[in-house]
Design a protein around this nucleic acid. Structure first.
Lengths: 211, 211
DNA sequence: TAGATTGTTAATCGATTAACAATC
DNA sequence: TAGATTGTTAATCGATTAACAATC
């Protein structure tokens, strides 16, 4: 189904479309034109139509797009109607915050296990998910299908862990450490959430605004 | 100092340069060529030279770049040697995780206050930072210079709060909510950390890898 | 039908890559 | 000096924007 060669720019915009469509959907709007969307989102109508037409023709000439239909199409493209299994590695502050804060139920990911090295937490559950010892992670991955690993562990062990989980068969990594993960790069999919990169970019723009 | 019209693509790569330079710096490497950096980072040497030359000529023909010098230049560009003051709004799980987890000491941001509405936490300190009631946020901003606000509060109050802090004089927002912040857009700088966008992109690539 | 808006091709713009003279 | 590698201009490539015939 997936067409080849769709640029990352396009993919990265899809979640924003979802966000806006959800917002006008909850406001009861049934249909929307690319011109109307472009006004709200600060893109050009042309770009929106180009983006969508990478995946198919979802609109009707002279009418526009059915909001709920379009939303459903994009959700499908993003795999939001598929279930991916995931494990979380590192149940420290950040890991626990993610577990209790992030609505995995609204995502396409099902969290099936947590791993940590702290004896005080191994064997318990966090937000209803069982916590196992990190030593057992390969065994677990080989026993259950695990699509993705969420890395919320200290940076200095991130690379080694990325290598371990990908060697054991995990396909994707959601990387919350401020590390590059080059050793895991062999064909695995890495999505980085680099807090400090983002903060440095904010810092740059603050500087710029002062000039 | 800031030259105009430097593309976001370039700015967004700068933190990565910092990361790699730090890594080879701590390995004791003193000099590096654009070719060597390009191999490590998976960019072209041309692109690296183009990126850097947006800001000045930091290298020596026939020699390359002094790692520590180049690192220092980029840090300067990113405002990492300036101090920005920041407040954090919303001391729930995510806010507290950020407070205890993220090394603000390594950043150019100095966190001077936390705001929340929970009486159980107002008046105390979290990670050494005093917590005030959100009602007093305008008063505080007007009394102290506040460059940026970190939003780690529930999504449904994010827009209203963004508007409040920018009206009170805050210039930048580090937005951890999964909300767009259109109402704060009038001239303020917004850096988004949209967890679910990132996860949806990971989901897309996982789908793609299965095709 | 007339008006609106799509899907899609063509034109433009900007970003990346290649090339090379300058120079350490 | 000869070799290496920069800074920078030119060429290429890709992404965005504009235009418009097709069509609901």
């Amino acid at each position: 189904m997936a067409k080849v060669n769709i640029s990352d720019n396009v993919i990265n915009r899809l979640p924003r479309y979802i966000r806006y469509l959800d917002s006008i959907l909850s406001a009861g709007v049934e249909r929307v034109s690319s011109a109307e969307l472009s006004r709200r989102m600060g893109l050009t109508a042309s770009q929106i139509r180009q983006d969508l037409n990478c995946f198919g023709a979802f609109g009707q000439p002279g009418y526009g797009y059915k909001v709920s239909e379009l939303r459903q199409h994009i959700a499908e493209i993003l795999g939001m109607n598929t279930t991916h299994t995931a494990i979380l590695v590192g149940a420290g502050n950040l890991g626990q915050a993610l577990l209790s804060n992030f609505r995995f139920g609204n995502s396409s990911f099902s969290l099936i296990a947590v791993f940590d090295v702290d004896p005080a937490i191994v064997g318990k559950t966090v937000s209803g998910i069982p916590v196992y010892h990190s030593d057992d992670i390969e065994k677990f991955i080989q026993g259950s299908k695990v699509d993705a690993a969420i890395l919320t562990l200290p940076g200095y062990v991130a690379n080694a862990m990325a290598e371990r989980v990908t060697n054991a068969g995990v396909k994707g990594i959601w990387n919350f450490t401020n590390e590059e993960l080059p050793s895991a790069a062999k064909g695995s999919i890495i999505e980085n959430v680099h807090f400090s990169d983002s903060l440095q970019v904010l810092s740059y723009h603050l500087m710029e605004s002062k000039n």
